[in-house]
Design a binder for these strands. Structure first.
Lengths: 192, 192
DNA sequence: GTCATCATGTAAAAGGTTACATGATTGG
DNA sequence: CCAATCATGTAACCTTTTACATGATGAC
């Protein structure tokens, strides 16, 4: 029930078409909420029907027209209501953990390649995050540290940054853990 | 497509009824793969039809009979095939990250209670994991360090332990990050 | 010319959630 | 007697995934 809200947040950050949203769900937002373009188009259509979003046809030169969506008042209200409601489950699906436990009943050493592949994905993602952090949140040329002259706190920017820091912490933890997994699997490899 | 495999792994670790599996999915396994009893009963029935699991009626004194499931050869083969196939997506759904980014368009300070609640959940879970680790994997009374006399490596035990260490690392990371989130939100709270 | 990218969708199948339903025993 | 726990399920609904489908432009 929260793909709606993820889309609303993304549209508040910047209005865009279904296609553009789908691309964002492959990058920034997609790192903590996955969605395919089929899902996105369906939800946009439903939210349009419910008056949560407004649509505007944007003709483009050379390219097909796009429908630019932006959040309507009703959508903002729906988001507010969701923000105020507690969420519990944080349901997780860690295939790799299931595989590791399952490997005990098969060949543990056969899992090494798979774990290394995952480690590479997390290494790449970490590098990507760190590059994004340096680009978007790099040290401002502060003289004498933060002061009132820095202007009001930009909530959107600060909160995006703290979520990104979460992603960075997650990738770092995963890399350390996957090394632990590899070391553990290695003990069986040599023991065979 | 992997609830099947999570159930197979759990049944290989220890045969049991649908009810018992549902309880395990609330505890150990459930921390990296969620499932309700309705899902489990449905999948067990399907796997029984496909010959992946065997069933045995166990009459009990005082309690309703239970159907004890165990993994058949075809189930083991299916698990092996899954273990050998690469998995990519690791699809994530972090409601809280969406909420944090969404809070920029609402009241960031209003999220403090929710974040604190999540922090508590992770603190409790960490304590639970650490207790489990001490109980199940506590230092054996080794004299002179590890040696061949310790016997062969127990793959099931070692791999369960490394998965548990992953859970511990995850909870620790989350607590540190949630403190970062709280500090970030706090800057808006006082700025209002 | 062919491939990648932009842009939007439909349809079917699989999987997950929520609500309802039953019935026995044990402990307070 | 009432609540909790053990034990198993059905039905309806919603969401997600996978496959198919179309058509244009720009770069090579």
């Amino acid at each position: 029930m929260a793909l709606d809200h993820a889309i609303l947040v993304s549209l508040l950050e910047k209005p865009g078409s279904g296609y553009e949203l789908a691309r964002r769900f492959e990058r920034s937002i997609g790192y903590f909420w996955t969605a395919t373009h089929q899902q996105i188009y369906r939800v946009l259509k439903r939210m349009e029907g419910d008056g949560w979003v407004d649509v505007r046809d944007v003709p483009q030169h050379g390219r097909p027209d796009k429908k630019e969506y932006s959040v309507a008042d009703a959508g903002r209200a729906a988001l507010s209501a969701w923000l105020a409601a507690p969420i519990e489950p944080e349901s997780v699906r860690h295939d790799l953990a299931v595989k590791i436990r399952g490997a005990a009943f098969d060949d543990p050493a056969a899992l090494v390649g798979e774990v290394e592949r995952h480690r590479q994905v997390h290494t790449d993602r970490l590098a990507h995050y760190l590059a994004g952090e340096a680009r978007d949140f790099g040290e401002p040329p502060a003289e004498g540290g933060p002061s009132a002259a820095d202007g009001p706190l930009d909530a959107e920017r600060e909160l995006q940054h703290v979520v990104l820091r979460g992603g960075i912490a997650y990738e770092r933890m995963m890399i350390v853990w996957l090394d632990d997994v590899l070391a553990t699997l290695g003990r069986f490899e040599t023991a065979r």
